[in-house]
Design a protein around this nucleic acid. Structure first.
Lengths: 362, 362
DNA sequence: CTGTGTATTGTTAGCGCTGTCAATCTGGAT
DNA sequence: ATCCAGATTGACAGCGCTAACAATACACAG
């Protein structure tokens, strides 16, 4: 009797009675079922009679019950945590990624745990392994450039941990979300050519952050497509930061035959180019057109506002996280991961603002 | 014998043997002590013989053991999670806060859980309460402007949840970290006056984000201190964003007797002012000096680079998190929270760049 | 030596939940 | 009616750790 009837199949809890702390057995008692059935409902397990599920749901609502993630993590094999590895030089990029990931996590009942390698960390793969085993995350979101380190991907594959890459560069199998950097970059150059520019400079990004290469490809592709020559002296090396853009700008503008337009592989560097130009007495866009890439808030805070490519980073991270959660769910049900192309492409539209205009008349 | 010697006081675990998963009993076995002693060492409890502690530490190192946060959370009364509530319009501010908080969390063995109210959320206090009870965080970090909502603070006090505020505005008791907005703002205006400016405009920030008021106070204080009149027509309302700064800039510059310098309550708005000025044909700093506040990366990406006040946000958030962790520890030991002034002040030095110069000669 | 108090270590019972497996119920087919 | 497969539900044993208490070891006064 003390067992079966007093207050439901599992009895009442004895501790922390004052700690307004609703547990699964409170719900079970109220719904008149066992805690296991409540657990089934929570986890959407099959074979629960609709009427029963309904009663449980009502009890959950009434008590405002929320399962304790610690207990779930301890008992089950999931930690309900997703890891986000970042090593991104751009706060803005990272910040928007976090927002997107957070949103998807909230929706899916996951928590987000962020981690970045120490500045002097040389063995990224080992770092990631340590992080994974310590925090027991269920899956990993890899933002560039960490998602392009083969050693890390190998390690993850060996452990068998689900992961999704944001903006991956290689053709490695596995889930990912990205934009088509190449054609977006080509679109920028198309735009400049349509305005009448014939000598168009390019500022490359950080050599390790390979979106740089794709954007350079797009730049050259558009040039070739319009029958314009590729002149390597018009391609300056940058590092994706303001200062390097500034340097590159000076380098390009002091050429004997300088370009009439400069396309920088991101907004920060475009801002640097603009600073260099204004310093050297060029007016934008009258004497020089400038275009960037990413559409960070910066691009709207420059004067004149910058023509750039909008990258839907928040959406991409959100979708990446959703994909990751789906993958984790499949794995938990021992379903095979689907084959085939697994890269989700996002639109990256050109945003024409005020830094691009026809070249000065000869 | 089976109890005492076979494999240590607690025996060996039976499940998930392959899952390279080191638990507290593995450590106990290797060190030849009970799991409770290991627990004592981990939690720095007193009354462990140094030699024993040493053996345990060695075992922990050998096995690369890390306690499972879920299990700790479930068994103890701590969740080892700290919540960060944000509703900040500035990605940069928030991002730097996150970095600082994350760093302190890592050091203290805590995880960080971020949360922001829904855009249309009206009852902030209830939202915070729900978040706290759902995620079972041990403490809360309140970034502006959420840290200034009395209803939220009341609710938190009622629950008895430790919290620390970043940049609080009122004199409410409780821990917090901040800069002296007023004197920092005054220092900016001092600087402008020293350069020879006599008509100095001010762009106010968002009325709800009360740092705005403190900065305005500083502006007026400096003016008064130097015997200059306070002219309300020189004070334009802004919203802390670029667009509002642009508007305010136009408003001030189209005055019959426009200012020779404009101090905006943050960098974004200063960028807006700069845009407005350049649009209207004013050269900076020759015709107009501009100063901002916050020292966001933006301030270095503008041309000319912006004179502003450096706010050590990352450090502030780091320190705030440390304070929070200390407070949680005290509470867990049932120690009383210390009385007295609990606001930690940080330096916010003026960074003079290129947007401020003597006013044009009459 | 013995007794007493304190420092140190161990034992045991959960924390709230899920996984396993057994028990019960249901709806036909016989 | 009777039986059986499948659907539905429940009992119970942990997950890895901490809290409360128990047990032992040790130190030193009497």
């Amino acid at each position: 009797m003390s067992k079966a009837s007093a207050s439901g199949p599992n009895g009442t809890r004895k501790h922390r009675p004052a700690k307004g702390h609703v547990t699964i057995s409170d719900v079970a008692d109220l719904a008149g079922v066992s805690i296991k059935t409540v657990s089934r409902v929570i986890n959407h397990e099959p074979n629960v009679r609709p009427a029963t599920a309904e009663r449980v749901h009502k009890a959950i609502q009434t008590l405002d019950y929320l399962p304790d993630p610690s207990a779930r993590g301890l008992a089950g094999q999931q930690s309900w945590m997703i890891g986000l590895i970042y090593e991104n030089p751009s706060p803005n990029y990272l910040f928007r990624s976090i927002l997107g990931a957070l949103q998807a996590c909230n929706k899916g009942g996951y928590a987000l745990s962020m981690h970045s390698p120490e500045p002097n960390e040389d063995d990224l793969a080992r770092m990631v392994e340590r992080f994974v085993s310590q925090s027991r995350v269920d899956g990993l979101l890899l933002t560039p450039p960490v998602g392009d380190v083969p050693a890390v991907l190998d390690a993850l594959e060996r452990i068998g941990l689900p992961c999704v890459r944001v903006a991956p560069l290689d053709g490695r199998p596995g889930l990912g979300v990205c934009i088509d950097d190449r054609s977006a970059a080509a679109r920028v150059v198309d735009h400049l050519i349509e305005l009448g520019h014939r000598r168009i400079g390019f500022v490359k990004g950080h050599p390790d952050h390979g979106a740089s290469d794709a954007r350079q490809d797009g730049y050259r592709l558009s040039l070739m497509h319009h029958g314009l020559p590729i002149d390597e002296s018009l391609e300056a090396q940058g590092q994706f930061d303001f200062e390097s853009g500034h340097q590159a700008g000076i380098q390009l503008l002091e050429l004997k035959s300088p370009p009439t337009a400069i396309f920088a592989a991101n907004d920060e560097m475009a801002a640097g180019v603009m600073q260099a130009a204004q310093q050297l007495g060029w007016r934008i866009p009258d004497d020089l057109s400038v275009a960037g890439f990413d559409d960070t808030p910066l691009s709207r805070s420059l004067w004149p506002p910058l023509t750039t490519v909008h990258q839907p980073i928040r959406h991409m991270a959100l979708r990446a996280t959703e994909l990751l959660i789906e993958q984790i769910a499949r794995r938990n049900r021992d379903e095979p991961q689907p084959e085939g192309p697994s890269l989700q492409l996002f639109d990256a539209p050109l945003v024409v603002r005020a830094t691009t205009a026809p070249p000065p008349a000869r």
